[in-house]
Design a protein around this nucleic acid. Structure first.
Lengths: 184, 184
DNA sequence: ACGACCTGGTATACAGCGTAAACCATTTTG
DNA sequence: CAAAATGGTTTACGCTGTATACCAGGTCGT
């Protein structure tokens, strides 16, 4: 708070004339972030709309790493932007022909997935450059023979990088295709 | 720290003779939690093994809500239990006939999903009993006509409760079935 | 036009946090 | 038997969010 005050050239306490407390402030910021998400209007092509919405959501979340934690963990109650966001996605599903029940399932599955990827990406503890070095010290810690599959996995990551866009879309399409099958 | 010291009948600072800092302490606790997960040994029925592993993981995470945040957000580097856990799941996939690449995808998708559900469940801000009351004040805040689909969604939740076991397994099976299709 | 009130700022203070530093008794060990 | 490791205490520092009191300037009702 004092730091934010400094940004405004003001004593920290002055902020409390404008927001109730730090948490309220963060809630507002979070909702502002969420308002950046671009949601296509509900229509007939639910799949591409949902896909686009999910991708946009992830992009926004990755653009504001600090907000990830708060949004994902529901630490901030839903503000107007979040409500709009939810209604948009739910609308896409309903208009796309999903039943109320299936809409419920689809919404939560995709929601959890997007947020999960966002959080995992944001909070991955190593920088891309340190990865190689990191992996090396890593592979020393445990006898490679104890965790053969893990070694293989890490080596794969060394070749292909951290969780990237491709990985996200792989899972996303997996879900969307499954949902499509269930809708019919 | 001072509180934990009190539990041991000791001054807070005494703890620093046993752990490097608070973060280290939490890492240890997190790994202990993770060691509670029961993973079936890798074999031929990858699907049921993965399923069982995911369910066990979720159960453990829900049993220790405080650990959820840390585990999910990777705030704690992987300890021995986590390594074991990862290797187990990766092994299940590889032994089950998945290629290295598909194993990578499958692992991350399921991992993200399980952790996402855990975090969402744990950090859902309202108690089960207050839900109805909560929803009511909720539905007043925004004109119901502005968010018709959201209203519908909330009403569905009022009938069926918060995210429950069924919802989790729905998404899980969705993923597992898709993975099965992709494996072949 | 004048007192009341609202607005947005300051100053001070408090309790809480993690933890660094110095010190001290009691084992354990070379 | 001296040296050193072990596990505790005390004190203190800088950081946090924020309650409280105070105060200047502008706005408003009469």
């Amino acid at each position: 708070m004092r730091g934010l005050g400094e940004v405004f050239g003001v004593e920290g306490m002055a902020l409390y004339k404008h927001v109730a407390n730090k948490h309220d402030l963060l809630e507002g910021m979070v909702d502002l972030v969420l308002s950046e998400v671009e949601l296509p209007p509900p229509g007939k092509q639910w799949k591409s709309e949902l896909r686009q919405g999910a991708i946009s959501t992830l992009k926004v979340l990755l653009r504001h790493p600090w907000a990830c934690q708060l949004i994902v963990s529901g630490g901030a109650g839903p503000g107007p932007a979040m409500l709009r966001h939810m209604d948009g996605i739910l609308g896409t599903l309903r208009e796309g022909g999903f039943s109320v029940e299936m809409t419920h399932h689809a919404y939560h599955v995709v929601d959890v997935y997007v947020k999960g990827v966002a959080l995992a990406t944001v909070s991955f503890p190593f920088k891309k450059e340190d990865m190689a070095e990191m992996a090396e010290t890593f592979l020393m810690e445990f006898s490679a023979s104890d965790h053969p599959y893990l070694v293989e996995h890490i080596q794969y990551h060394l070749e292909t990088g951290v969780l990237g866009e491709g990985d996200f879309e792989f899972g996303l399409d997996l879900l969307l295709d499954s949902l499509e099958r269930l809708r019919g």
